[in-house]
Simulated assay, not measured.
Amino acid sequence: MLPTGTDGPALLALCRPALDVVTPDVLCAVDRALAATKAASRRDDVQVVLAEAINNIAEHAYAERDFGALALRILLNDTVLTIQLTDWGGALPDDQAQNAPPPVPTNLSEGGYGWFLIRTLTSVTSYSRVHGQNRLTLEFELF
């Protein structure tokens, strides 16, 4: 089931396997959906945020499983672009979406930048675990 909670028709709704090889196709579909809308100016930010979020789902939510699914829904109004991601994998530990520490640039670590980028490039980031589903909502204010 796709997440609910924001009224109006979806600009894009899809469900795909949660695999790294699928991420480019999802990003292209989202970019095409946004290209001719008032959210076109946020396309670069959306691409970075979605790449990070989908990577986290594929690597972590389904780390103990061979296969998983990801549902995506995009809603758009006059002031906000909302992207809702749902997966059925393992829960996100320790409210990481809101409280992950910022990366330390001198650490030279490859990881640790994902949640920092997601929170920095979105206006609102919220996560909930409901009935075995992870629900991540990403909002982008429109300029």
Rank of each mutant, 00 (worst) to 15 (best):
Q96A: 09
P93S: 02
D87W: 01
L76G: 09
A91P: 14
N99Q: 13
Q98G: 15
Q96N: 04
Q98V: 10
L81N: 11
A91Q: 09
L76H: 10
P103D: 01
I74S: 13
D94A: 11
T86I: 06
L70A: 10
L92F: 08
Q96M: 12
L76P: 06
L75G: 03
I83W: 02
L76D: 12
L70G: 03
G90S: 13
L76Q: 08
D78E: 12
P103Q: 01
V80Q: 15
N99A: 15
G90K: 05
L92D: 04
A91Y: 05
G89V: 15
W88C: 13
P101C: 01
L81F: 10
D94G: 10
A97S: 11
T82S: 09
D95E: 11
V104Q: 13
N99Y: 15
D94E: 13
G90Q: 13
P103S: 05
Q84E: 03
A71E: 08
A71G: 09
L72M: 10
R73K: 14
Q98C: 12
L70K: 00
L72S: 12
P103K: 00
G89Q: 05
L72G: 03
D78Y: 01
D87I: 13
Q96I: 07
P102C: 04
L75N: 07
Q96F: 10
A91D: 14
I83L: 05
I74R: 11
N99T: 15
Q84D: 14
P93F: 00
A71S: 10
Q98W: 03
Q84K: 12
A71I: 00
I74A: 14
Q96P: 05
V104H: 04
A91T: 12
G90R: 10
A97L: 08
P105Q: 07
V80A: 15
L76F: 06
I83N: 02
P102F: 04
T82Y: 00
L85Y: 00
D87V: 14
T82M: 03
P102H: 05
L76T: 11
P105R: 05
D95K: 07
I83E: 00
T86F: 01
P102S: 03
P103H: 06
D78G: 07
I83F: 04
T82F: 01
Q96Y: 12
A97Q: 06
G90V: 10
P102T: 02
G89S: 10
D94H: 06
L92V: 15
L70T: 09
V80L: 11
D87S: 10
Q96K: 07
V80G: 13
L81D: 02
W88R: 04
L76V: 13
A97M: 07
A91G: 13
T86P: 06
P105A: 03
T82G: 03
